[in-house]
């Protein structure tokens, strides 16, 4: 049977015509949102009031166009746990949190899937069953207990706590890796045994490279997720704010946001509250890295990633 993706030919279909219009309208709303974010970030407040929808400058001329909103977002700071944290440190926290957590969140299920798929012990079946069971069985409301655990182990308020919390194997990507490893013929392993390779060498140098596409794709997906995630750092690492938390605070109530230039004067001041331009400038800064990654790795991110393994 051929499972290739050949084009299906239909006569003109009202069904797909209507569907196309609906998707087109939906697409228009998404594109409009990105457009609005970009143009509003460069408007002054009076410009935005006079000209909320169109390009900057069409309301109050050149006076309506500004880079001040972007500058203000970068020069403000967040007060977290009594300490003023500036944007570069938040970017550093975000990179460590996103990349580190994504790495462990990808590596751990990958390694466990390798052992479960390639080592035919009864316990491997148990590992698989645990994953399926935990994925199906919802456990609700464990946040207080998690906070207690982190405080008791001294991990609370440390970036490494995210690596530990998210570095678990009970997620759907275990199943993706499992299927991938199961799809690797035994010949590779046996040939390596014949050459005298150790188990570790077989795992690292022979089998893992075969699924590197899946590994990298899942790593990217996790990186984007964790870059956008503000809730986990908010709950478990409040003293090390990330960009996501900063932009969220900037966008909702601006509590604990201060003008960087006034820190150290004895009376630090907060920026003007609630302006749409400042919010959009913050959103733009947050969106740029993920949009960049999307531009660079679009095919990988949107590639055929199913529980049947990587295709094409």
């Amino acid at each position: 049977m051929k499972n290739n993706e050949t084009k299906m030919k239909h006569k003109f279909s009202p069904f797909y015509c209507v569907l196309g219009i609906v998707i087109g309208l939906y697409s228009a709303t998404i594109i409009s949102s990105i457009y609005f974010m970009f143009v509003t970030a460069f408007k002054t407040q009076p410009e935005f009031r006079a000209n909320p929808l169109w390009l900057p400058g069409m309301g109050r001329g050149i006076a309506g166009l500004t880079f001040n909103n972007i500058t203000e977002v970068f020069t403000c700071c967040l007060k977290a746990d009594g300490i003023f944290v500036f944007v570069p440190e938040m970017i550093y926290n975000s990179i460590i949190y996103s990349f580190g957590t994504a790495f462990f969140a990808t590596l751990v299920p990958c390694v466990m899937a390798y052992f479960a798929a390639k080592f035919e012990y009864k316990f491997s079946g148990l590992i698989y069953a645990i994953v399926v069971a935990v994925m199906i069985i919802p456990v609700v409301g464990t946040m207080p207990a998690t906070i207690r655990m982190l405080k008791n182990t001294g991990l609370y308020n440390k970036l490494v706590s995210a690596f530990v919390l998210k570095g678990n194997f009970v997620n759907m990507y275990f199943l993706v890796f499992y299927a991938s490893f199961k799809g690797v013929p035994k010949d590779y392993t046996e040939a390596a045994y014949v050459d005298g390779a150790s188990e570790l060498r077989i795992m690292v140098n022979v089998i893992m490279p075969l699924i590197r596409n899946a590994f990298f794709t899942i790593l990217l997906i996790f990186f984007v997720d964790f870059w956008n995630d503000y809730q986990t750092p908010l709950l478990y690492i409040p003293a090390k704010p990330t960009i996501a938390r900063y932009i969220r605070t900037l966008s909702t109530d601006m509590v604990n946001v201060y003008k960087g230039a006034t820190i150290g004067t004895g009376s630090p001041q907060a920026p003007a509250k609630g302006s749409m331009q400042l919010q959009m400038a913050g959103c733009l800064i947050m969106a740029v890295p993920t949009l960049t990654i999307f531009c660079l790795f679009r095919n990988k991110l949107m590639g055929n990633l199913s529980m049947g393994g990587i295709k094409g």
């Binding site: 998707i23 087109g24 939906y26 697409s27 998404i30 594109i31 949102s33 990105i34 609005f36 974010m37 984007v224 870059w227 956008n228 503000y230 996501a244 932009i247 969220r248 966008s251 919010q279 959009m280 959103c283 947050m286 969106a287 993920t290 949009l291 990654i293 999307f294 679009r298 991110l301 949107m302």
Partner: peptide, 20 residues
């Protein structure tokens, strides 16, 4: 084109989308 657009909500943060 639609495949790209339909994937964008996965890329953009909920904070960004919610503000807009």
């Amino acid at each position: 084109f639609f495949q790209i657009v339909l994937f964008i909500p996965q890329i953009l943060s909920a904070v960004v989308m919610s503000r807009v």
